[in-house]
Design a protein around this nucleic acid. Structure first.
Lengths: 373, 373
DNA sequence: TTGTAAGCGTTATCAG
DNA sequence: CTGATAACGCTTACAA
């Protein structure tokens, strides 16, 4: 690959008959600091302009040990949630004169670890990572090596690594509460991957809501094993395999899961919200246009991206050890048409007897909120 | 920002009591070429392993003038079409040991131009660009400067810059033909931004299909001015403002446009496919789950991304001037339920279309929440 | 007010 | 087989 001849400080210095340092100084905006004569300064600037000079960032990076680059490692850029975060991160970085190197870990811890090593070799100034694994040792090592790191979406509660994510617990709580308020009591949770803070917190919120409303937790109503379409599909088939134990409402932990659910329900001729209600995490531009406009828990992706960059720059300025806090971004429940009241559901689905009796039993035990049907 | 102490060739050389060059040579896998003794080679490798040495890519880049980095400039990473391309580009690049720097031009030529300059200063080895403007002068300049460039999605027919995009013309042709085969003759085209090859070619295919079926072209049936939600919304309102001239079918040039259309139609209580048929460019994982599962023209995003990287590497190997060809990726028409026969449409829609007058007055732009589209 | 020179960490050339 | 040494293009003490 032939390279075009680049203009360098040396070129300019020579054609002006002055030294490289002088050129460097005025072009770095330090003419005052070094009290360069306005005349030479002007000459330099003109020549730079004329030749279209742009300082070689590689050389600068080598000398300064700052690349003005941050690595962004996410599990899947074609997932609109991460795409939105990436966009915001890119914008915030650009604002500050930084570039981002995009790394798609394809949901693999191995790839993530490899990328981290590669990015380190590239001397990125910091990394924003949405980690996929259940262990964060490699991230600790990274931080110990002095590399500023911010986690997004998923994090490790026990590790002192700054993170920014949604208020997953309360988001889930709100969703499930909404379902309960519509009379549902057999509510299933289709969860994401085990060991991820995101899935764990959402499950936690689900359980809290159940508890608060006097509904006992039933492990059989928790299904799914990752955030994928397939997981949602399989989980749904399983949940509805026995009519008597089928849920009347579903809480889906992610939009991809939801599509799997939708597909499974369609195949089983179960319709929403007549036969079953559903609330899904993640709101996107198309959720309102789906066959049944979905009630969702919207995450503020822009805010997440923005705070991630902020936390990273705070580390640039104050040092890595000085910042360990996490930030939680509120979610909002967006109500649309995928939730119906239990009454209607029962009528249509026609399996009122068994589930009702169960429900009554639960109510009698410890009912906290007033049930409105 | 304090930097951690990195292991360098020098470190290893010193602790082993040998020269830097030797270390460099074995670690670069050139032990054989330089006939390094297996013993020293082994010692070096061990020490490198032990210390966790990774060659500093910045220094290497400065010396070699190869950064193993490619710049990717796209109009909007949160648009799933571009996200999918980005993903593929990232994967193909990674396969070859390259990183990508992600630049979101936010549909602005100015930002695009600025990014190009910045990426040049960073000495990226090449760029993959989805240009936003109607002029490609800056791209020619870039190529003349010796930088390998590949255009994706949009290109400039008159300029000798390699590109890869869908067979937009035949894709549009197929879509419109399908509409015609369902009996439609008043078919509107909601187009993307003027001057973009993408929109122009799709319009071209639309006109060709019309012509082939003996339908005369009516400029009033072409609406829209960019690929956005708003454009689709406004265009649709306009198209249906006069009952007598309203189309019975719509050909939408992009999925975002389509959502605008969907919203507008919903507001006007026009339903699909009973009242109006629609075929949209772009197929995504959710298109089958929309209120009416959409018939679409699917683009092979993976293939586009893959070929873009290929064309770029061909330039790396053969030189920039040696590759100027474009590649066209076939599209496929995915039939779902958004197209009905004209017969039915007329029957249901009726001659009089009472809702039309209402529509005109109902101009209060009802802001759909703050959903970015 | 300006210049000299020493690096930053690699790689390549030239000598041994 | 191995070692000096000179770049790559920039920044910044230290001189002058």
């Amino acid at each position: 690959m032939k390279r075009y001849s680049k203009i360098t400080l040396k070129n300019i210095a020579e054609s002006l008959g002055i030294s490289i340092s002088t050129v460097s100084r005025v072009l770095a905006g330090k003419s005052e600091k070094y009290r360069i004569s306005t005349k030479t300064a002007e000459r330099v600037r003109l020549e730079a302009q004329r030749t279209g000079f742009h300082p070689n960032q590689i050389a600068s990076a080598l000398r300064l040990k700052r690349t003005h680059t941050i690595g962004l490692i996410i599990p899947d850029i074609s997932n609109p949630f991460f795409a939105a975060i990436a966009r915001q991160v890119e914008m915030e970085a650009a604002k500050r004169g930084y570039f981002i190197i995009l790394c798609d870990s394809r949901d693999s811890t191995d790839i993530e670890i490899e990328y981290i090593a590669l990015l380190q070799a590239r001397s990125v100034d910091g990394m924003i990572i949405s980690p996929v694994g259940t262990s964060g040792e490699h991230l600790i090592a990274l931080r110990n090596a002095g590399v500023p790191v911010v986690l997004v979406d998923r994090f490790f509660p026990d590790l002192p690594i700054p993170y920014v994510t949604s208020e997953n617990r309360s988001g889930a709580f709100d969703a499930v509460t909404n379902l309960v308020n519509h009379g549902h009591r057999r509510i299933a949770c289709v969860r994401g991957i085990f060991g991820s803070s995101t899935a764990d917190e959402r499950l936690h919120g689900y359980r809290e809501a159940l508890k608060q409303h006097g509904i006992s937790f039933d492990a059989k109503l928790v299904a799914g094993d990752d955030f994928s379409y397939d997981s949602g599909y399989t989980a749904t088939k399983k949940l509805f395999s026995t009519a008597s134990s089928a849920p009347s409402a579903l809480f889906s932990q992610g939009i991809l899961i939801t599509f799997g659910i939708l597909k499974a329900l369609e195949e089983m001729h179960i319709s929403i919200p007549e036969d079953v209600s559903i609330i899904s995490f993640d709101d996107h531009y198309y959720t309102a246009f789906l066959s049944t406009p979905l009630t969702t828990v919207a995450q503020n992706k822009e805010s997440i991206g923005e705070h991630a960059v902020k936390l990273l720059f705070r580390q640039f300025n104050r040092g890595v050890d000085k910042v360990t806090e996490g930030v939680l971004i509120p979610t909002t429940l967006v109500e649309r048409n995928s939730v119906g009241t239990l009454q209607k559901t029962l009528k249509k689905f026609g399996r009122d007897k068994p589930s009702v009796s169960k429900r009554n039993r639960c109510q009698n035990k410890n009912k906290i909120t007033n049930e409105r049907v």
